[in-house]
Simulated assay, not measured.
Amino acid sequence: MNEVTSEEQGDFTVVRLSGEVDLSWSQQVRQAILDALEREAGVGVELSAVSYIDSSGIAALVEGFQNARQNGRRFALVAVSQAVMAVLELARLDRVFPIVADVEAARAV
């Protein structure tokens, strides 16, 4: 089941994704990330429960990362699943995104 939730933790928001991030709901993912970046100084996108991600999902992550950098905000991918990591590595984005093991590490990025 696809789900996106946001949990505010002070000046940091964790956007948790689960399921398959594809064209059918990547716009919701994009909006959740951008909304969190408008409110908070930092955002971590938790991907441990994502079983599949396509190019539209990757584009949503890239847009969030670029938005954060342009506005001086912190941004990290948290607990990335093997399925997502394989796509990131294939696109060599594992060298671009800050990727951390847990939320505490994301807050320190």
Rank of each mutant, 00 (worst) to 15 (best):
V84F: 02
A79M: 02
A32M: 13
V103S: 01
I33M: 14
V21L: 08
V80I: 02
L88S: 06
Q28F: 10
V103F: 02
R107S: 11
A68Q: 12
V96R: 00
A101K: 00
A60V: 05
E40R: 15
A91L: 08
E63H: 06
L34Y: 14
E20W: 02
A68H: 09
S81K: 05
N67D: 15
R73N: 12
R73P: 00
L93P: 03
D11P: 08
N2V: 05
L93M: 03
D22H: 06
A41V: 10
A49L: 05
R95L: 09
I53K: 06
V78L: 04
V87S: 02
I58V: 13
A32L: 12
A36Y: 08
A59S: 15
Q82Y: 01
Q82S: 15
A59L: 07
A105P: 03
S56R: 08
A36E: 10
I53Q: 02
S26L: 10
V4L: 06
V45F: 04
E20M: 04
F65V: 12
G72R: 11
R39Y: 10
Q31I: 12
I33N: 14
V80K: 02
R107I: 13
A41N: 11
E40M: 13
W25H: 14
R95P: 07
V50Q: 02
A60Q: 07
A49E: 07
A60G: 09
A86L: 10
G19W: 07
L34P: 10
E89S: 09
V103P: 06
E8Q: 11
L47T: 05
S56N: 08
A86T: 03
A106F: 08
E63W: 06
A59F: 07
M85H: 02
R95T: 09
L77P: 03
D102L: 13
R69T: 13
G57L: 07
R74N: 13
L37T: 10
R95W: 08
S55Q: 05
S81F: 04
Q82M: 09
F65D: 01
Q66T: 14
G10A: 13
F65C: 11
D94P: 06
G72V: 11
E20S: 11
A41T: 12
Q9G: 08
G57P: 01
F12K: 04
R30D: 15
M1H: 03
V14F: 01
L34C: 13
G19E: 09
L23T: 14
